[in-house]
Amino acid sequence: MTTAMEAPQADRSRMAVSETDVAVEIIGMNKWFADFHVLRDINLKVMNGERIVIAGPSGSGKSTLIRCINRLEEHQDGQIIVDGVELTNDLKRIDEVRREVGMVFQHFNLFPHLTILQNLTLAPIWVRGTPKAEAEESAMKYLERVKIPEQANKYPGQLSGGQQQRVAIARSLCMNPKIMLFDEPTSALDPEMIKEVLDVMVKLAEDGMTMICVTHEMGFARQVANRVIFMDQGQIIEQNEPEEFFSNPQHERTKLFLSQILH
């Protein structure tokens, strides 16, 4: 794992957290895969502008949790309310939530049959009905923001992992989401490419984006997060401000986990 030393310096002064506006609220949520209880009694409230990092050993349910937030996974019990909309089986509500929530995946999941530019403009054109020229203009703006405008007409297969992940972030941003979910965005990257992706994520945080990141980048958590959540066996074990979380973990399981990943 990269350490705090390599993590980019973030300007915390610009990251305002709203006192009143709730971005995501999860109340008493449970989820099962067949008879396996993956998420147990999850309660979580994320305010607008908050940056949450979710850590934990593999199989602890971190990914499943954030995948529930945009309904890539269905929960069986409890409530999930995203931007004021409760997720139920109602497809209209699901689409409404997904329009406002961006997601970045571990394996990028760019569309290999489309160029970078087409990857970015697809959703604005087909979901929001943005005219093509306008969508392309805004896509180029986001590509410049992630520093790869020159790749616009290439295909994903021609880009490096780091570049692909930056495209994936830009692709989500093109929909102007209110909340961004990151599912281990740097886990599939070579060490040399992790920083370029983290840089983009830090910029995003500085612009006030509400972010929920599943990541093992503890340096990033220290720099950017205002809350770190530790999960194990489908439960939230501990949550705290990053300074406290790293320097003074309370639960035995957290101490063990931190001792293993921070050396």
Binding site: N70, R98, V101, G102, F105, H107, N109, W126, V127, M175
Partner: peptide, 29 residues
């Protein structure tokens, strides 16, 4: 891969649009 339709859903595309724009073109190719 399942990630293709998941990425499409996450962007807000409906199931028919996901099939028509993402999975089917790749499958046919």
């Amino acid at each position: 891969p399942r990630g293709q339709s998941e990425a499409s859903f996450a962007l807000g595309l409906s199931k028919p649009k996901t099939v028509a724009l993402i999975t089917l073109p790749q499958a046919l190719k």
